[in-house]
Design a protein around this nucleic acid. Structure first.
Length: 523
RNA sequence: GGCCCCAUCGUCUAGUCAGGCCUAGGACCCUGGAUUUUCGAUCCAGUAACGAGGGUUCAAAUCCCUCUGGGGUCACCA
């Protein structure tokens, strides 16, 4: 029994696509489910920019989600190198063999000629097949051209005219067939000798002994060509599994980075953008910055989503354990993941569903864990000074306890800035102020209650509640007629955590100071 | 356009391979109610789907055919 080996081969693009992450997740899951190995191989054959820099966000995303790789960048491995740009000699050797065995040929036609052949076929509405002019050349002619250093590409010889139908069993899609006798000969290497994706990918998968090729369905049309390359090289056939792609909400089109800005107008995605628009500036992040949109994995981390939630969400998108299990830990998914339960059809991302997973997993967190999670957001926003003292940690914990399940993503804590700003810097929501404080009689009641609040001892949630209730009773005032004014006076907002929790967190002095300031404001 | 893939509630899905247990189940969203000092959360209840047409069969969401619809891909990109 050979060990299962799967891989993900990202291109260093500077960000990790959420859909790509899902494909990577499935490949990783299959390896882990089988106690196998997961490899990260970098497709950097076509990179102009700084590879290391463009790769970093991708590795970060893998680490954040908890997808570890046994071989690849930073960890190395027995099949080094893991950067395609460094594997030139391996491709050259494979190419040499193919040429030698007559399974590939040198095509001396310049690109313009190939191009016009293609256009001619299109105009005549017939299937395009490259013209094998260079195959007519005698050995001597070829030798002469080579000696003269004439530019040429190398093409694989497809089984043209043999009526061959290639049938491949995909682990997810089942049998898929192609008539490979009517396909053009694919270019394996450019005129500068560099390999093309289809070729490099096959050589690497074989060299790295991948047992399963698990990737997005958009690669399905590459399969016949890749398989034939593989066959020509005499490699074993791996198990192929083509995963359906991820689409935008309300769309059946592949979710793409190019659509990131269009997504802003997508009704289902809009709340995400809106949330980021208020959150990111507080954190000193550029909301329009590169890679800072919900197509990129980094966005979710920046907003304070939990990797557990995103993992659960992604695993559940296009895969199910059964008909009812929704909440799944990493261990549960690894234990139960199988390729045959991957859905064939594309699936749309649903921010609401993600949120419900997020709610669940946040709820699983201990108060300590929540505190640790939230602290980086508070310090970045300047609400909490560094280094963080035990005292502030305790204050944050009290706020979180009062927030309870109002904390969904970590950055939600920033909405409760009333607990972190100085009393004289607290801002008032004008609408709430007018409705609850500036209204007829409200200020008088607030002033009167202020004095009885001043004497509450000790000052906690229970005693303040008791104080308000008895004050209401003895003054024949309904609770609702004073509590809202107190809320706006002490927090500046019309809504928030439980009123008495808020009072207790603030403490007597700050409550009184804020009420006095509010009273001054009414005039 | 060629080739290929896909098709169950608005969305994610169970059921399809081994036809009857499906007057189609769960989750998210949505709606209504309960609870509540606000928001949120929670608890109940509800709306909502087998793309169409032909077969096969005692019986079809499940098998076969056709159509329709959606999508992917067609480079000396990856």
């Amino acid at each position: 029994m050979t060990k299962v080996r799967t891989r993900f081969a990202p291109s260093p693009t500077g960000y990790m696509h959420i859909g790509g992450m899902r494909s990577a997740l499935f490949a990783w899951l299959w390896a882990r489910h089988n106690g196998g190995e997961f490899v990260l191989r970098i497709d950097d054959t076509d990179q102009q920019r700084n590879v290391a820099e463009a790769l970093q966000p991708i590795l970060d995303a893998f680490r954040w989600l908890g997808l570890d790789w046994d071989e690849g960048p930073e960890v190395g491995g027995p099949y080094e190198p893991y950067f395609q740009s460094q594997r030139g000699a391996i491709y050259a050797e494979a190419l040499r063999r193919l040429l030698e065995e007559g399974k590939a040929f040198r095509d001396f036609d310049p690109p313009e000629v190939t191009q016009s052949d293609r256009e001619a076929a299109e105009n005549e509405k017939r299937n395009y097949l490259n013209v094998r002019r260079s195959l007519e050349l005698s050995d001597d002619e070829v030798a002469t051209k080579l000696a003269a250093d004439e530019p040429h590409v190398v093409r694989l010889l497809m089984p043209r005219g043999e009526g061959r139908v290639l049938k491949i069993n995909d682990a997810i899609l089942g049998d898929v067939e192609w008539n490979v006798s009517e396909m053009p000969d694919p270019v394996l290497a450019r005129k500068d000798g560099s390999p093309l994706y289809n070729f490099a990918s096959v050589v690497d998968d074989a060299a790295m002994e991948m047992t399963h090729v698990i990737r997005a369905q958009e690669h399905l049309s590459n399969l016949p060509v890749q398989h034939l390359i593989r066959e020509s090289l005499g490699y074993d056939t791996p198990v192929y599994a083509h995963i359906p792609f991820v689409t935008a909400p309300g769309s059946s089109k592949k979710l793409s980075k190019r659509d990131a800005n269009k997504l802003r107008k997508n009704p289902a995605m809009k709340p995400m953008f809106d949330a980021a628009d208020v959150t990111f500036p507080l954190l000193g992040l550029d909301a329009d910055g590169d890679g800072m949109h919900p197509v990129a994995v980094a966005w979710y981390e920046a907003m304070g989503y939990l990797p557990e939630a995103v993992f659960n969400f992604l695993a559940r998108l296009g895969w199910s354990l059964d008909g009812e299990t929704e909440i799944m830990s990493r261990e549960t998914v690894v234990e139960n993941f199988t390729l045959d339960r991957v859905v064939k059809a594309p699936a749309a991302i649903d921010p609401d569903k993600l949120k419900s997973f997020q709610q669940h997993w946040t709820g699983e967190l201990s108060l300590e864990a929540k505190t640790e999670g939230v602290l980086p957001f508070l310090t970045k926003a300047g609400y909490v000074a560094e280094p963080v003292t035990d005292e502030t940690r305790e204050h944050v914990a009290r706020v979180l306890k009062a927030m309870n399940d109002r904390l969904v993503v970590f950055s939600d804590v920033l909405k409760f800035d009333e607990f972190f700003v100085a009393d004289d810097r607290m801002e008032y929501e004008e609408k709430a102020f007018r409705k609850r404080v500036a209204k007829e009689g409200a200020a008088d009641r607030l002033r009167a209650f202020r004095d009885s609040l001043a004497t509450v001892e000790p000052f906690d949630a229970l005693t303040t509640e008791e104080a308000m209730k008895s004050w209401c009773e003895s003054n024949d005032v309904k609770l609702g007629d004073v509590i809202h004014a107190v809320r706006v006076a002490t927090t500046g907002k019309g809504q928030g955590v439980g009123m008495f929790d808020a009072l207790a967190i603030l403490g007597r002095d700050r409550c009184l100071a804020r009420i006095d300031r509010t009273l001054d404001r009414v005039g």
